[in-house]
Every structure is written in C-alpha cells, then in structure tokens.
Amino acid sequence: MNISFSEVFKKFRRERELTQEQAAEAFSVSTQAVSRWENGQTSPDITLLPIIAEYFGVSIETLLGVDSEKRKALHEQYMNDFETAIKSGRVNDCIEIARAGLKEFPHSYELMNALMEALFKSGEKSAGNPDWEENREKHKQEIGSLGEKILAGCTDDDLRLRVKIRLANLYCNDFNDLEKGRKILETLPPIESCYEENIQSALRGDELLDHYGRRICSSVGCLQYYIQAMMIEGTGIDPVYTAEERIRLMKVIEDIQALVFDEGDNGLFNLTVSERYFETVIPDLISLDRLDEALAYSEKACDYLENYYELPEWYTYTTPLVRGSVGQTIWHTADSRSRAQIILDDMLSKECYSALNGNERFAKVKERINSLD
C-alpha cells in the first residue's frame, strides 16, 4: 500500500499545485507526515483516507493505487471514443462521452478540455447544428467555468494554449467582455515564436519544400478568411461594405485561389466558396435585381459543391507550389443532415430566393443539390 499510495498522493498533490505544507494544512497533519507519505515511509491513518479521497475527487481505491493500470486504460478509452466521435462529426455523442468520463475522472484536464471543445462546437453555426444559437447561450457559462478551471490547475502548456484561445473567444463574442478576452489573448506567444514559423531552420530537401507548401496553403486560407470576415461581419458594429463591394471582394477571394492553386485543385475551398455564394453573393445580386447573374452564380456554386463531394476524405494537392500538402473533407456537426441539404435548407429559408422560384435554371440548381445527399 505504501508505495502505491505515495505515488498517487504525490501525483494528485502536484496536479493541484499544492505544496506539502498546504496539503498538510488541508488534512490537519504535519508537513513531516506528508513528506513521509510521499517517501513511502508511512501511510495515513485509515480514517483519513475518505477525507483525502473526497478532497481529490477520487475513490479510495484510486487513491490506494488499486487497478491503476485499468484506470489509466479506462481514461484512454474515453479519450479515444471522444476522438472517434469528433472526427465523425457526432458532437452530441462527444458531449455525452466527455461528461461520462468526468464522472469517473473529475480532475482530468484532458476530459474537461474535451467537454469544453464539444460544447463550443455545438454552438457554432458553421458546424451545421440547427440548434446552434440555443446551444451557444445554454452552454456558455459551463464553457467559461471549464476553461477557468483548466487554466487554474493545468500545467500542460499545449493544453493551456488551446484553452486560452477558446476562452478568449468566448469572452469576446458571447459575453462581450472584450477587456477580459484581450487580457487572455495578450498572454499568447507572438506568431514569430511559434513552431511553424521557425521549424524551417531544421528542415532540408523535400521536407523543407513540404513545409513551405503547407505554409503557403495556410497563408492563402488566412488571407481569404479575413477578407470573408470583413465582407460579412465588418467591424461588428455596422456593415462596412455594400452589396456591390461584397460581390467584388468575393471575386478577389477567387482570384487569390487561382493565383496559387491549379484548376481542379481547390480542395475544401470548393465547399467554403459555394457556401459563401449561397449565403452572401447570390442574395446580394438578387437585392440588386441582377437575377441572371444570381442564377449564373447559383450554377457556379453547384459546380463547386459537386467538386467537393467528389473529394476523398483525405486528399493531396498537386499544384507545384503546394505539392504534397494534405487536406481533409470531414466537418464536425451535431446535425444529421448532409452538408448539401443544410445549404439547400438554409437557402430556401431566405425570403430573397423566392425571386427565383418558377425559374427552370433555379429548379435545376435545387435538383443538383438534392442529388448530392
């Protein structure tokens, strides 16, 4: 018992970032007693075990190291099940898995982060969840609580970094607490100190070329994302661009893609550009009474969407500048509908599209989208 207990006790104490003096105070014993426990010289009185177990939120069996390998395997199983569910887009299952895991391992920062990620994902419009607004409001307090708890106790730098980004996003966008969100963001490392910006010094030959290709892909995506964000969101106060300007900016996004990528090598861009057409460009054209152009863009959006559906789960770019870079078509959602069906339902819910009803070309567009299920 002594050896197992000593290792487990020391682990839990360090996870809580307690000194031996603080642990001694918590359990009303001397610092020397705690030191002897951790050195395996003595064990706590049996009457103290329930108190220590409750303090750390574990069972007495866990505290004594009973079946520690089984406990470790069980924790890994929860994390593996979560990863499988998130990769297949089953966000609601992810929430259930993480909650069940936390009942068994209430102080697991990995499972806290998993639950935080799943709750956050359930409230993202881009995830295709029809209840995203309700979920976002319902879960925001819990997400914030989980994030603060992780930052207060977790010492894993990588995990802390991911949580900081998500938590800052929550404070800025859901609580409108820009000061609190900014304070967290200001603790993040500058971009010039990150791995991706510096690893090239250690690479040579094909490995270096592959790295450059990935960085080009990432840079193009970032540039396109920021232009789209300005098109749609503006400053967050008032729209910055008119319908005419948004249409031109969408053309800029496509031109950037064409500058870097060969025709037919658009990858996930096929999906994002088709969504942007249906959500923004076509409604803008309809509002300007340019119905022929709206129909042409609808057909073009279908072309992009069909190209997306022809992609395998994993695909490799062949364009010389980014040759070898790999992309993935999977998207996370709690919605059982296909991506095409979500686009179609969203399109038909917009009143502006009624201007195209009865048009044969538009009817064909709807048929093409339906056929992608």
Score class of each variant (00 low, 15 high):
I256Q: 07
I256V: 09
Q257H: 11
Q257N: 10
L259G: 10
L259V: 11
V260L: 03
F261W: 07
G264S: 05
D265W: 00
D265R: 00
N266L: 14
G267K: 00
G267Q: 00
G267P: 01
G267S: 02
L268C: 14
F269Q: 01
F269S: 02
F269R: 00
N270Y: 12
N270D: 13
L271E: 10
L271Y: 11
L271V: 08
T272H: 06
V273C: 09
S274C: 10
S274H: 08
E275W: 13
R276L: 14
Y277M: 07
Y277S: 03
T280M: 08
T280C: 12
T280P: 04
V281Q: 01
I282A: 00
D284S: 10
D284T: 02
L285F: 08
L285Y: 04
I286D: 00
S287V: 01
S287H: 06
L288W: 04
R290M: 07
L291F: 05
D292G: 08
D292T: 14
D292R: 04
A294L: 03
A294G: 02
A294M: 01
L295R: 03
L295T: 04
A296L: 14
Y297M: 13
Y297K: 10
S298V: 09
E299S: 15
K300Y: 12
A301M: 10
A301H: 13
A301T: 13
A301Q: 07
D303C: 10
D303E: 15
D303A: 07
L305R: 01
L305Q: 06
E306D: 15
N307P: 08
N307Y: 06
N307S: 15
Y308W: 12
Y308V: 11
Y308N: 11
E310H: 05
E310T: 08
L311A: 04
L311S: 01
L311T: 03
P312F: 05
P312H: 04
P312M: 03
E313L: 14
T316D: 12
Y317V: 02
Y317Q: 06
Y317A: 06
T318H: 10
T318Q: 09
T318I: 08
T319H: 13
L321P: 10
V322Q: 05
V322N: 03
G324N: 04
G324E: 06
